[in-house]
Amino acid sequence: MDAIPVIATGMEQDRPKQQGWREKKRRETLQRITDSALRLFASNGYEATTLDAIAEAAGISRRTFFYYFDSKEEILAAWQKGLPEAFHAAVLAQSKDQSPLDMVCNAHLTLLANFDAEQAMAIDRILRSNEQLRASNQAKYLLMEQVTFEVLCEIWPHQPRRETLRVVAMVSAGALRLAIDRWAEGQGSKALADYVKESFAALRSLSAET
Results as ranks from 00 to 15, higher is better:
Phe66Val: 04
Leu127Ala: 10
Ser61Trp: 12
Gly186Tyr: 01
Asp181Lys: 11
Val104Ile: 09
Ser189Val: 03
Phe149Val: 00
Ala120Asp: 01
Leu76His: 06
Arg62His: 04
His88Trp: 01
Glu131Pro: 02
Ala89Met: 01
Ala202Glu: 13
Ala122Lys: 10
Arg177Cys: 02
Gln13Thr: 03
Val147Cys: 07
Ile54Glu: 01
Arg182Val: 06
Ser43Phe: 15
Glu131Asn: 09
Ala122Gln: 07
Arg32Trp: 08
Ser207Met: 13
Asp52Gln: 14
Gln98His: 04
Ala57Tyr: 07
Asn137Ser: 13
Gln138Asn: 03
Gln98Leu: 08
Gln119Asn: 11
Lys72Val: 04
Ala173Glu: 03
Leu109Gly: 06
Lys197Met: 15
Thr34Leu: 15
Ala53Ile: 09
Ser95His: 11
Leu152Ile: 08
Asp14Cys: 09
Ser61Arg: 08
Ile33Glu: 09
Ala42Thr: 07
Met121Val: 00
Ala184Ile: 05
Met103Gly: 06
Lys96Val: 08
Ala53Thr: 13
Asp2Cys: 11
Ala208Gln: 13
Ala55Gln: 02
Leu92His: 08
Leu178Ser: 12
Phe65Asn: 02
Ala53Trp: 09
Ile7Trp: 04
Glu56Trp: 06
Met121Asp: 06
Phe87Pro: 05
Ile126Ser: 03
Ser136Gly: 11
Ala193Arg: 10
Asp35Tyr: 14
Ala53Tyr: 11
Glu145Gly: 00
Gln80Pro: 08
Asp35Thr: 15
Lys25Phe: 13
Leu133Ala: 04
Leu206Tyr: 02
Leu51Arg: 09
Tyr68Asn: 05
Ala58Lys: 04
Arg177Phe: 03
Val91Met: 07
Ile60Asn: 01
Glu74Lys: 10
Ile126Thr: 06
Trp21Glu: 11
Leu143Asp: 08
Met1Gly: 14
Thr148Asn: 02
Trp21His: 09
Cys153Thr: 13
Leu142Lys: 08
Glu85Ile: 07
Leu83Asp: 05
Glu118Pro: 06
Glu28His: 12
Val171Met: 04
Ala175Tyr: 07
Thr49Asp: 10
Asn137Val: 00
Lys25Leu: 14
Lys140Ser: 02
Leu192Ile: 13
Val171Tyr: 02
Ile7Met: 00
Leu127Glu: 05
Val104Tyr: 09
Phe69Asn: 10
Ser207Pro: 13
Asp116Leu: 12
Ala8Pro: 14
Leu112Cys: 02
Glu12Cys: 13
Ala173Tyr: 06
Ala113Thr: 15
Glu154Lys: 13
Leu40Phe: 07
Glu85Val: 05
Tyr141His: 01
Ile155Ala: 10
Ala57Trp: 10
Ala179Ile: 06
Phe69Val: 03
